[in-house]
Simulated assay, not measured.
Amino acid sequence: MTSKKSAKLAVLIDADNAQSSIARQLLAEVGKYGEAHVKRAYGDWTNPQLKGWSDVLPRNSIEPIQQFAYTHGKNATDSAMIIDAMDLLSSDRFNGFCLVSSDSDFTPLVTRIRDSGLKVYGFGEHKTPKAFVSACDEFIFTEHLNHRSERKINPNEVAMSESHDPAHNASDSLLQNSTETTLHRDEWTRLSDVCEHLTTRHPDFSLSTRGYAKLSDLISDSPQFDIEERPSQRDKSPELFVRHRRTLAGTMKI
């Protein structure tokens, strides 16, 4: 089985639909999932609106793919990117794809790639339609990448600054619901079960944008949960179990 760090990835960027300012942070985030063996950006480079990419592409070794806008109102860039993705998929050289766009037109492409057994990591803005977000194995919102680019994030600062952020309040709710969904009768559940539920049901839940590398660290720092280590019944390694703290007050009914 290929490890996450050794995974060979193809990074395809819809330059018509992505900001050039996120390129460096984007590639740093991609590095958490594997190695970018192909980095391509698609657009009509004669368009002055893409001028911001001119310096970014060579600095980050991103190959520009020219696609003229042959017909007004038709997105030729999307078509070129989808065709290229299918060619790369058929080469059997990759373990996964990173698709950078906020356009739902790529949803069928994501489904096709995942049907072939490869991972798909999506990158886009909060305006990205839910269908595209949900289709990916994981989805990272690019606004958070830009916000975190200039300094090291203190998780406590993140928690304070995001207390009024609807997106992160939604993430807290997802974590809570995932814990409750996977609860055992004694009100404790394996952390691995919670992680699996989040990964499969909520690909837009991102640890990195919250300043954490591991789910166990996020839960340990949260006042909403209890977490403890127990001997494993499966092997010699200990297991982590978690429960929602309000169960102690008897307010949750299973």
Rank of each mutant, 00 (worst) to 15 (best):
P166Y: 10
K130H: 09
R246D: 10
W45R: 07
K5H: 07
S61Q: 07
P238Y: 01
E150W: 12
S171H: 08
C195W: 13
N169E: 11
R151N: 11
A131N: 08
L57V: 02
L248R: 14
T128G: 05
I140H: 02
R246F: 08
R24K: 15
S61A: 13
V11F: 03
D226T: 06
P108S: 07
H144S: 13
D165W: 12
F132E: 09
K8R: 09
L99N: 01
L118S: 03
T189E: 00
T46D: 15
D186L: 03
R59P: 12
A10Y: 00
E157R: 12
F141R: 15
T247F: 11
R40P: 08
K32A: 14
P58E: 02
G52D: 03
S102R: 04
H164G: 12
R114D: 04
I140M: 09
N177V: 05
G124N: 08
L89Y: 02
L248C: 10
K236V: 00
R245S: 11
D235M: 08
D87T: 02
T111H: 14
T46E: 09
L183D: 13
T251Y: 06
S220G: 06
W45A: 00
P238N: 03
E239Y: 11
K214A: 07
I219Y: 10
C195Y: 15
T128D: 02
D115E: 13
L191G: 04
D92G: 11
F94I: 01
L88A: 07
E143M: 08
E138W: 05
S171V: 02
Y70F: 09
T142V: 13
A36G: 04
K119D: 00
V120S: 02
E229F: 12
M86T: 01
E143F: 05
M160L: 15
L57G: 06
K51N: 11
T209L: 09
W53K: 08
K253H: 11
V194G: 10
